[in-house]
Structures are given as structure tokens and as C-alpha cells.
């Protein structure tokens, strides 16, 4: 593995992002603004919680689902680069190793996730949420976006049409963004569903973030589960990239 090669792959993504930074920031502000308005400000005023306000409850959830979306969506262009533009060939041809390529691409997605997380934090502050910022919180956000970037990468390498990519969004990401302890506690779910939901990475991210944002404990087990997901995701992504060479 080679840091310089990782840097090159990242440089390309940064070059593209830089050009649209304003547009990117504006577009990333819309969703959290709506969530915060609808659920935090609108609905939240009528919701009673044992501790804190509903707004404080959902901000970590929104950060979790946002970093999921940003991780995944950061990898979607790779699908077109592989299937339509064939520009992925440049990387396969070059001396850059598959792992350097994958890490470079993940870094690009993580950067987007971090920028949009900052936007959410700022917006939430404006709405008057009480959130405790910490280094661990950012580590969890990064980890979550890595996991979903890997899932996005895997999908981009394996699926044959763009419609299928969109279906992953509809059938996997969208349900998760509502079910995984983001807008309500998983404790409210029926036991069978809860068991299943508790296996999903986003659930652990939401709970971890919520605990951190409210000054609670660092949930080590959840953190280890996220690490495990990230490791498996990396392995699968790398394998998909290498299989692509086998044709």
C-alpha cells in the first residue's frame, strides 16, 4: 500500500468536489433543514421525553443517517465509471494497487460525510439543540460513513444497471434511515423486528452518537460491531475490485 497513491485517488475526488463545493453545501443543507423543521421543531414540540427535548433526540439520528447516505452516495459515480464511461480502466491499468484505490475512494466519501455532518451540527445549533461535540463523535461518524461507502462501492462494482443502484437506496438505505434508532428508540419495536434492527450498523451508530451527544457513556460493544462491519466491508470491496479484473 502506498500513501501517495491513496492521495492521488483522493486528489481526483477533491478536485471534482472543490469545483462544486458551494452547490454541494447548499444541497446538503436541504434535507437536515427539513428533518429538523418537521420532526424537531414541528412535531417535537408535542413529544414528551424523559430526558431532554425530542430535537436533542433526533439530531444524533439525523447525523447517523446522513453519514450513511453520504458514504453510500459518494460511491455511486463509480458505477457509471465502471459500466458507462469505463474510466475505471485507467486505475486498473496503473501501478496503483486495488487497496490504495479503495482507500482513496473511501476517503473522498468520508470527506463529504464530514462536511455535511458539520452542516447538520450548525443547523441543529441554530434550532437550539443541545449537543455535546467530541472527538469520539467524529470517529463514529467517520466509521459509519466508511461502512456505507464500502457497501456503495460493493454495489457499484457488482450491479449491472443504474436502476439497481437506485433500488439499493429504496430498499436498504431508506428503511434503515427510519428504523435504526434514528427518529425513535428501537425499544418501541416488536421483539423480532428489534432483534433484526439491532444487527444493523446504523442502529449502533445512532445509539453511539446519541450517547456521546448527551454526555453518556462510550458504548464499546457498538463501536466494535461498527469496526467489524467496516473490516468486512473493506474485504468485500477489495474482492469485488479484484474480481472485476477476472471478468
Amino acid at each position: 500500500m502506498n500513501f501517495r497513491d491513496i492521495g492521488t485517488v483522493f486528489w481526483r475526488d477533491w478536485l471534482v468536489l472543490k469545483r462544486r463545493l458551494t452547490k454541494f453545501i447548499l444541497s446538503r443543507t436541504v434535507a437536515p433543514l427539513l428533518y429538523l423543521t418537521a420532526f424537531g421543531w414541528g412535531l417535537g414540540r408535542n413529544v414528551q421525553l424523559s430526558s431532554g427535548t425530542y430535537l436533542d433526540f433526533i439530531v444524533p439520528g439525523i447525523m447517523a443517517l446522513n453519514s450513511m447516505n453520504m458514504g453510500f452516495h459518494g460511491m455511486i459515480p463509480i458505477h457509471a465509471e465502471r459500466v458507462y464511461h469505463k474510466s475505471l480502466e485507467e486505475y486498473l491499468l496503473s501501478p496503483v494497487s486495488p487497496s490504495a484505490f479503495l482507500i482513496g475512494k473511501i476517503s473522498g466519501a468520508v470527506l463529504k460525510a464530514l462536511i455535511s455532518s458539520l452542516i447538520i451540527i450548525l443547523t441543529a445549533e441554530i434550532f437550539g439543540a443541545n449537543i455535546l461535540l467530541s472527538g469520539s463523535m467524529f470517529v463514529v461518524l467517520i466509521l459509519n460513513s466508511i461502512i456505507f461507502a464500502e457497501i456503495g462501492f460493493f454495489a457499484a462494482m457488482k450491479l449491472s444497471t443504474y436502476e439497481e443502484m437506485a433500488q439499493v437506496n429504496t430498499y436498504v438505505l431508506l428503511p434503515m434511515s427510519f428504523m435504526c434508532g434514528t427518529f425513535f428508540s428501537t425499544g418501541a419495536l416488536p421483539e423480532v423486528v428489534r432483534f433484526f434492527v439491532n444487527c444493523l450498523p446504523l442502529t449502533h451508530t445512532s445509539q453511539l452518537l446519541r450517547s456521546l451527544c448527551t454526555g453518556g457513556i462510550f458504548m464499546r460493544d457498538s463501536f466494535l460491531i461498527l469496526i467489524l462491519y467496516a473490516a468486512i466491508g473493506f474485504y468485500l470491496g477489495l474482492k469485488a475490485l479484484k474480481n472485476f479484473q477476472e471478468d
Partner: peptide, 21 residues
């Protein structure tokens, strides 16, 4: 043709140069 559509002509060459160290 397999250029990176997000980059301009010179940037495509620069990406290549960087990929080759």
C-alpha cells in the same frame, strides 16, 4: 474513449501522471 468525464483534458493527463507516480 474512457476519460474521466468530470475532469477536463489537461486534468485527465494530470491524473494519469499522478497515478504513475
Amino acid at each position: 474513449i474512457n476519460f474521466d468525464r468530470e475532469l477536463n483534458a489537461a486534468e485527465n493527463l494530470e491524473l494519469h501522471a499522478r497515478l504513475y507516480g
